[in-house]
């Protein structure tokens, strides 16, 4: 597996973490002692997740001639 393939695996894991963390923060916000910061962090994590999806598409296009091995 080349660095290109491993990087894709890593970015997919990061996207999953970003969206999962976003959900966790929003659930905290809705809890009785939730604060506006939970919502801000949740939205920021969601934005990071979306950014990583966009980056992954860019990365695939940029390195389309590099082998996965």
């Amino acid at each position: 597996m080349s660095l290109k393939a491993f990087h894709l695996v890593f970015i997919v894991a990061s996207i999953a973490l970003a969206f999962g963390f976003s959900l966790w923060s929003v659930l905290n916000y809705r809890a009785p002692s939730g604060t506006i910061w939970d919502l801000v962090i949740g939205l920021a994590a969601f934005a990071v997740g979306v950014g990583l999806v966009v980056y992954e598409r860019y990365f695939l296009k940029k390195l389309k001639n590099v082998s996965y091995l």
Partner: peptide, 24 residues
């Protein structure tokens, strides 16, 4: 450089699992 990058990615991937497990 690719070999060092593979190791670096492994280290980063470990953290991707450590962060939710320990912090969240």
């Amino acid at each position: 450089i690719e070999i060092s990058g593979l190791f670096w990615h492994f280290v980063d991937l470990v953290w991707i699992f450590l962060f939710p497990v320990l912090y969240l």
